[in-house]
């Protein structure tokens, strides 16, 4: 039983991009705010803060989740991956490489959410059809591109990663 009265803080421990992190926070704070402000990973973006735009999408225990629609407190004991956790040894993740190759983004503010959704999609369905790609990505808004280049980015990722997992 944990109880935190108004004005007091809560210890939350979680794994972020493979590292264990503990933060002492006001329990009303969203996971997105804690990732950005306490953990200092500002690659996760806030576009609407009410769960529509998808820019704040992260992977929570491997599944995509809106970090604006979670309290950080709810992430206790979970393992999350943010956009900063994708590259290994300075080399872009295949999805990042693919999005670069396809010139997928313009302002790229929405890009972390799209890439997280893409990773989740390809994890489940390594060789999706265009319709499946569009359906999956329809939870992420982009205002610059008209989406075609992002869809091509996913298709390029399939080529890089192979159609099976």
């Amino acid at each position: 039983m944990t109880a935190v009265p108004i004005g007091e803080t809560l210890d939350v421990s979680l794994t972020v991009n493979g590292a264990t992190v503990s933060v002492d926070i006001d329990p009303r704070r969203s996971l997105a705010d804690v990732i950005r402000e306490e953990i200092g990973l500002t690659g996760t973006h806030l576009g609407c803060e009410h769960g529509v735009c998808g820019a704040c999408t992260i992977l929570l225990d491997g599944e995509p989740a809106r970090s604006c629609l979670m309290l950080a407190a709810q992430a206790e004991g979970t393992a999350i991956t943010t956009i900063e956790g994708l590259a290994t040894n300075g080399e872009m993740h295949p999805v990042q490489q693919a999005m670069h190759e396809a010139m997928s983004f313009q302002c790229a503010f929405c890009s972390p959410g799209f890439m997280m959704s893409t990773i989740a999609l390809l994890d489940d369905n390594p060789n999706p059809s265009e319709k499946e790609i569009r359906e999956e990505l329809s939870g992420n808004l982009c205002r610059c591109t008209g989406y075609e280049s992002i869809v091509e980015g996913v298709e390029t990722a399939v080529k890089i990663m192979g159609p099976t997992r």
Binding site: R36, E37, H45, L46, M99, H100, F105, S111
Partner: peptide, 23 residues
């Protein structure tokens, strides 16, 4: 040429500097 974007080198890895990122 269809030269790939140099902006991607920071933006695609979460290292952009948008105004909310300056804290």
């Amino acid at each position: 040429q269809r030269v790939k974007r140099v902006e991607d080198e920071r933006l695609l890895i979460g290292e952009g500097t948008f105004v909310a990122d300056i804290q």
